[in-house]
Structures are given as C-alpha cells and as structure tokens.
C-alpha cells in the first residue's frame, strides 16, 4: 500500500496503567476506507489500542503513553490537539449498546446539537440520513419520539452507529460491537460495516475470528500487549508468518 493511503498510524506506542504495561511498542498503519480488524485473546491490548486513537484513555487515571498515534500525519497526543474535534472526526461504537436514556431522535441529534447545530430542519435531515445509513430507518422512522431504551439490543447498537454517523466522522472505531448481540443482529452489523467502509475508515476489535475474516481487509494479531503480526486478512488467516498467530487462529489457545 502507498503511504498516501495511510489515514492513521501508530508508531512505537507504549501504554502503562500505573506500573502495568498494556501496550508494548505497537506500530500499525491503518489504510483509508478499509476495514482493519484487531484480534487476540482477552487482555491482549487490542481495546486499549483503539482507545488510544480517539484518546478515550485520557479519562483513565494513571494511564501513561509514549510513542505516537498519527492521524492524517499529525500526532493526536500533541499539546494543541483539540480532543473535541478529534473525537468528532474519529467516532466510536462500544461493546455494550449504550444509547442515552432519551428518545431515538434525541439520541441521534445529541452529537450535532453539542457541536452547534440547532435548526430543526437540519437536525431532522441528519437524523433521517444517519438512521438510513445505519439501516435502522425502516424500523424506527415512525417512532422517533419513543425511548431508545425500548429498542432491542441489535437495534440499540445500530442506533449507536447512527449516533456516531450523525457527527460525520472520517473514522469509526468498533470495540467488539457484536459481543452482546445475537447472530442475526451480528450479521446485520457486519453487512453494515461492509457498506460503511466505502465512506469511512474502520477499525474493529473482535473476539470472533470468523467475523474478522468476513469483514476486514487487514488484520493485526495482538498478544500480551504486543502486536505480533499485521497483514492482509487473507494472508493472516491462510499463511500466518508467526507461530503464535497460527496457534491462535487454529484455536490452540485464546
């Protein structure tokens, strides 16, 4: 891949929670408009890694970072980076669907509103577009004033995706988005990711290797805080270079 296609790149990223090192010298290039999957056993640092990209780890006490995370060539940890703008441009969908305890409409309008959109017509449009893009409009278009918490788990997760799309990000980070969902809801989210990658750069953390194989173009394998192997998904799954990658993929541990 050419360097001009790299949207995000971590360079020698190290992270400590207190004295425990959670990431060791991680360097990964993330290509624009592609899906990159991060796989590995629990506690290997893959979630910690994506939370470095939109600086969600800032919220954690005693978290210390060295190295760089370049977003469009600029280190997101530079002093004058505005995290509000950074997080608006790099959205995140979490493991457990976390809609706000408000109406469906207000959930989607939440982001645009905090970023200054007030006009009703403009908000209506964003809400409709976002719900359509998240393949949820057909189901909730008529009940926008209903509490979001009344929706099913799968619908709630698509609502969270719509909420993320509403602030018009360039990158979407998915942190095990299907681990709390049933197989049918999972399939719908995967279909959605396959569509969204045309417009967004996507990074997905997953425990499910079939999922990584189905949705991603590139895969990185993490083990004990280190990035062991990175490459085309096909190559990682068919011809892994590292022994530990092969062991994990063939189910010998993890």
């Amino acid at each position: 891949m050419g360097t001009e296609d790299i949207e995000i790149e971590s360079r020698n990223l190290n992270l400590w929670y207190g004295s425990a090192q959670a990431l060791k010298d991680v360097s990964i290039p993330i290509e624009k408009n592609r899906v990159t999957a991060l796989i590995g056993p629990s506690g290997c640092g893959k979630s910690t890694f994506i939370r470095c990209i939109n600086r969600m780890n800032d919220l954690i006490k005693g978290c210390r970072i060295t190295g760089k995370v370049l977003f469009e060539g600029r280190d997101v940890y530079e002093k004058d980076v505005d995290v509000v703008v950074l997080r608006k441009r790099i959205g995140m969908v979490f493991q457990k669907p976390n809609p706000f305890p408000m109406s469906i409409y207000d959930n989607i309008a939440y982001g645009p509103r905090i970023h200054g959109t007030q006009a009703k017509r403009e908000l209506d449009e964003v809400v409709e577009d976002s719900l359509k893009a998240a393949a949820l409009w057909d189901e909730v278009g008529g009940i926008l004033d209903k509490p979001a918490l009344d929706l099913s788990g799968g619908q709630q997760q698509r609502l969270c995706i719509a909420r993320t799309l509403a602030v018009k990000p360039d990158v979407i980070l998915f942190d095990e988005p299907c681990s709390a969902l049933d197989p049918i809801s999972t399939a719908r989210i995967e279909d959605l990711i396959n569509v969204l990658k045309h417009d967004y750069t996507i990074i997905i953390v997953t425990h499910n290797m079939q999922q990584a194989a189905r949705v991603s173009d590139h895969t990185a394998f993490f083990l004990l805080g280190e990035m062991i192997e990175f490459g085309e998904t096909k190559q990682i799954f068919e011809r892994p270079v590292e022994k530990s990658t092969e062991n994990y993929i063939t189910g010998r541990f993890g």
Partner: peptide, 17 residues
Amino acid sequence: SGDLKEGSVALGATKWQ
C-alpha cells in the same frame, strides 16, 4: 453507568456537556 459517559465523550462532548 460509565458506558453512557463514554458514549457522550466519544461523540466529542465536553465533560460539562
């Protein structure tokens, strides 16, 4: 729940918002 707070912060909301 911390999940709700994270959801809001991840959309670019400030702490006070």
